[in-house]
Every structure is written in structure tokens, then in C-alpha cells.
Design a protein around this nucleic acid. Structure first.
Lengths: 330, 330
DNA sequence: ATGAAAGCGCTAACAC
DNA sequence: GTGTTAGCGCTTTCAT
């Protein structure tokens, strides 16, 4: 069904020259028609061109366009080394959807190993018109190089605003703060904080703990940090000595740790809050901290779009705030 | 630090012409040197060119290369609408890593809504040299169009081999089979199969159940399918009437459902097996079915590489098999 | 209202 | 051993 379409003699892909020939006009005219420069081409010609393009199954060569225009329509979303779970999945798909809605093609780059040259290569090859990446990948030199290469908008993901590039502020510390705030508001003053020892969680854990600790210090509460693997036995063992301080609540790194902690607690009654608002949390009635990121994407994409189009050049940081989804456990 | 590099007068990006001028040679020579056509250029010239390129911070324009060569170095990995959890995350990162190792740039495309035009647009814009995508996105016409556009290798993800395109056979039915096989081998004959009602799991659930059912039928065992949400209460309720049949084992859609089922069982003792070999499974000593996909990637990438290079043209399907990771629960 | 032509940056066939 | 040159397919002045 695609093979019986008329094809140019050379057997290659249909180009605008083929369409031009078929419509009896010049390539320039084809370009004008197909790019919607309406006040330049007569109705009759437009019809002929559209028709020929349709008949030949013409699809413009985006690489050629990109070379000519100096930029693509592709947006690269480089993921920080976040452990890939439902929360991150939601973040990504919401972002991708919003970009696609605006007519861009959003592609995700997973930095498998921490080699920044891989990322640099990806940028060079894709020449994305806009780019979202963790700050580690965006030192000033790279941002400059990107701009020279046709990238019109760059957004760094960082825990605090950077000054050489617009920043999407995702501070894991605020997750810890939100959790502690929720607990302290409910009268808890001695709070166990369960953080992971698993290396893939180390970074996130450190930040969340920092936030929790800072909040406790600032509000006259006490945080009892626990560094353990996600295992009820290990948690129980580490918890035992702390119970003598009579903690009344527990904040866990994520919902999985929260579940393990609940198991570890056994008879002991503590208020428990987790992180991610995952299915498990909802199922078990576990209060949980969540980044409401999806709702922020329309704002983010709108900003990038305006920057790309040169309409505005707002470099102010976009801050994403976590919020607590309360359930029965607190 | 990037701004004090010498730049061509026009203030734009360094091109091969700039390097040529700086090295006192032609652009052709620059191209030859940088593309490693060693038996053509004298040692002295090579040094001069490398030197100039380095000094100017020259990075070849991949878009121009791609236009000229008719192909890019980018590989697109379009994800089937699998729920993004640890198992899928491992699958993706293993694949990406292997491609990067081979010098390709692997980008992931998340089909947010099921609109195939979004995917088509992505292909047109990226012009990937190879492509892995679910079969829904690869009807014969599209495969043909891709080949015309410079995509040298196409791999469809499908539950069974397709004949218009090489296939990565990922049959969720075999997951059900593997689980049942494990249980039947251990003497179980009446097995509860817990499958989700959540829409995002519907497809996978249907296939896994089909496989489990088929295996049971073929081996004189009985499968008692249960369609429930991931909730201990719901599972317990649905389970109650079935317990009169004296089942001895339970196979759950995934590890989360397995955990919920264990909770639902309470005092009732059944052998339980889940799916995904997730952290939870390992933690709780839950036997689990896992696609050993990561190990398959080197084979997959090698095949695509050979096809891209035109070395071989093996179209035979690549079959990925699940296996059971046994723990204490069975 | 339309066409001719230049050129984005690169590579490779063909000179010398 | 090195340079000249012709495009890849597109867009966009500048002419007409």
C-alpha cells in the first residue's frame, strides 16, 4: 500500500523537488505553501501543491530543515539519576505529553553511567532546540556551547537556583521539610527518620534527611536519623535503641521504606509518613509526600516555548514544591 | 573559559572551514583527518589539523553530517506502554548503556497518548539509524517509510515473531507460564491467579493470565483467576469463595499484588509467587518471575549494529525468556 | 504571485 | 598527499 505510491525515478525518498515538479511549480513555492506563508501564494497554486504533496506522500526532511534553520524541533529531557519508579514515570510522561501538545518532539536521555561525554555527544547529535538536564551536566561552558549550537532554551534541574542558567528547582530537602512539617503540625516532637543505605538512593536520602533535620532544628523538634537497608529486620534492630527516647512519629525515605518500617514496628504505635504517594501508600492509607510535578509542566513548557520563540526571556527559577497527601497513618 | 577561545570572525560556531583555515589545509583534508582516513594524509598534516581542531574547540555539526550521510547515529527506543517500575527501568538502562558503549546515542521515546502520529513525527525528526518500537507502531507501511528515511535496522517488540520486520519477542504469556511451571513442578495443582483490574495493568494482566491458564490446562492443574484491585481487602473478599477448592498456591500479577495477597491471606498458608523480582520481593523472600532482559541486550545491540553496518542481515526473531528467581515463599 | 539562486556544514568522488 | 567540487534537501532573500 505504500509501494504503489508514485515515486521519483531515482527510487529515493520524495523531496520537495518532486512535489514541485508534480505540481508544476518551483521548490520555493512548495516550501511557501507547506510552511503556511499564505499571503504570497494563490489559492489555485496552493491546492495544486497540497495535492501533489499528498499524492506523492511527501514528508519534509527534518534534517535538511534543521541544517538550514540551525535548529531542530526536538527537546531533550536528560534525567537526573533518580531511581525510576512510578513517581518519576509520572513526572516524565506528564512532561513529554505537554511538549508533544505544543508540537515539539520530546526525547528522554538516560545517563546510564555518569560519563558527561555521553551527554555531550547526545546534545551534539540531536541539536535539541531546548534542553532540560540536571545541573551536573550543565556547567557554564556547556550552556554556552549549547547556545551556539542552536539550543534556544536551557533549563537546569537543581536544588537551588543557578545563575548561569534558568533553573527548575527540585530540592529534595523540601521533601524532608514537608514531611516534618506535617508531623510537627500534628504535635509530634520526637521523630524517627528512616533513610536508605542502598547506593542508588544515597543522594536523595542525604538531601531529604538534611531537610528533615533542618526543619526539626528550626522548630524545636528532634529528628532521630536511621541509616538502614529496606528490610524490616534491619530497621527493627536499628530502631530498638531509639525507642527509649519515646519517639511518636516516623518519616521514611519512600513508601517502600515506610511499609518496611511499619512491619518493623510491630506492636509499637507511631505515626508514619512516607514519600511518593505511590499505589502502596494509597492502598495502605499511608500519608505520603508527593511532588505535584505534573501540574507544573504546562508552566514549564510555556516558558520554554516563549524562550524558544524569543517572545520573552524569563530566567527566573521555577520552583516545584512537594506537598503532603494525608491518609490515615498520621 | 569557553568565551576566550579563538572564534571565527562571524561569531558563530566553529566549522570545518575554520579548522581548515587555521591548519592551512582544505576542508576535505580536515574531514579526512577527523574521520580517520589515515592512509591518505601525511603525519605532519594530521598533527596540524588535530591541533587546530583542538585549539578552536571544533565539534563537527552532526546535522550536516546526517544530511550528507543520509543517516544519523541516533537510536530510538520507543517504549511500549508498560507501567514504569524497577523491572522496566532496568530494561531501559541496560539497553541504553549497551548502545552507548557501541558509540550510538540512545534516546527513549515515551508514547504519552496512543497517537501514532506523534511517533511518526518523532521518527521523521530524528531519523534514527535504528529503531526499537512496539509492533503497534510498526505496520509494514511505516517500516518501509523508515527504511527510505535512512533507518537501517528496525526491531519490533511483539509477543510473537512478525514477518515484515525483525522481532524482539517479549511474550507476557510466558511470564504466566513460568510462574505456573515453577508451582506445578513443586506439586501444586490448584493455583489462585491474582490479576489486576487497574486499567494501566490490564493488557499485561490479560497476557499473563492467558499464559498461566494455558499452562495449567496443559498440565492438569487448575487455575482460579481473580480480578481485583491491588488491595488486601478486595483480594481477601474475592479469595474467600475460592478457598473452598483448597488451592495450595497463588501467582500474583506483580510483586505488589503478591504482597497485598500475602496480607489478604492472613492465617491461610499458600505458596506465593510474584513477578518482577523487585526489591520488595528480595526483601520479603518472595519468589518472583523476572525477564532476564539485561543480559540479552548485548546480543540485541550486536545484531542491530551488524545490520546497520550491512555486515549481516539476520531477521530471525530474538526471544526473551522469563525465569523464576526462587526465594522462600514457594 | 512566482522563480532563480545562494548556502546551512559536511563528505567523497574525482582531479592533480 | 592534498585540493576542487558537487551535492544531501531545505528555506529565504532578491528579482521579476
Amino acid at each position: 500500500m505504500s509501494s504503489d505510491r508514485p515515486r521519483p525515478l531515482n527510487g529515493q525518498r520524495v523531496t520537495s523537488a518532486d512535489v514541485a515538479a508534480a505540481a508544476g511549480v518551483s521548490r520555493a513555492t512548495v516550501s511557501y505553501v507547506l510552511n503556511g506563508v499564505h499571503d504570497r501564494i494563490s489559492e489555485a497554486t496552493r491546492i495544486r501543491v497540497y495535492d501533489a504533496a499528498e499524492r506523492l506522500g511527501y514528508v519534509p526532511n527534518a534534517v535538511a530543515s534543521a541544517l538550514r534553520a540551525g535548529r531542530t524541533e526536538i527537546i531533550l529531557l536528560a534525567m537526573p539519576s533518580w531511581p525510576l519508579g512510578p513517581a518519576v514515570a509520572e513526572f516524565v510522561t506528564a512532561g513529554v505529553t505537554e511538549f508533544e501538545r505544543r508540537g515539539y518532539t520530546a526525547l528522554v536521555h538516560f545517563q546510564a553511567g555518569g560519563d558527561s561525554r555521553v551527554f555531550a555527544r547526545a546534545c551534539d547529535r540531536v541539536r535539541p532546540v531546548a534542553l532540560i538536564a540536571p545541573e551536573e551536566d550543565l556547567p557554564p561552558a556547556r550552556v554556552a556551547a549549547l547556545r551556539e549550537n542552536g539550543t534556544r532554551a536551557v533549563l537546569a534541574i537543581a536544588p537551588r537556583p543557578l545563575d548561569h542558567v534558568a533553573t527548575l528547582v527540585v530540592d529534595q530537602g523540601t521533601v524532608g521539610e514537608a514531611a516534618m512539617d506535617h508531623l510537627v503540625e500534628r504535635g509530634h516532637e520526637r521523630i524517627v527518620v528512616v533513610m536508605p543505605t542502598e547506593p542508588e538512593f544515597a543522594l536523595l536520602g542525604k538531601e531529604r534527611l538534611r531537610g528533615a533535620q533542618a526543619y526539626a532544628d528550626a522548630h524545636g523538634a528532634t529528628a532521630y536519623p536511621l541509616h538502614v537497608p529496606c528490610d524490616p529486620g534491619a530497621i527493627a534492630a536499628a530502631l530498638a535503641p531509639i525507642l527509649s527516647h519515646q519517639p511518636t512519629a516516623l518519616y521514611a525515605f519512600n513508601d517502600e521504606f515506610a511499609v518496611a518500617a511499619i512491619e518493623a514496628l510491630g506492636e509499637v504505635q507511631l505515626a508514619v509518613i512516607g514519600t511518593d504517594d505511590s499505589m502502596v501508600a494509597r492502598r495502605l492509607g499511608l500519608s505520603s509526600v508527593s511532588f505535584g510535578a505534573p501540574g507544573n509542566w504546562s508552566r514549564i513548557v510555556a516558558r520554554l516555548h516563549d524562550t524558544i520563540e524569543g517572545v520573552s526571556d524569563d530566567l527566573s527559577p521555577i520552583v516545584v514544591h512537594p506537598h503532603v497527601v494525608p491518609h490515615g497513618s498520621t
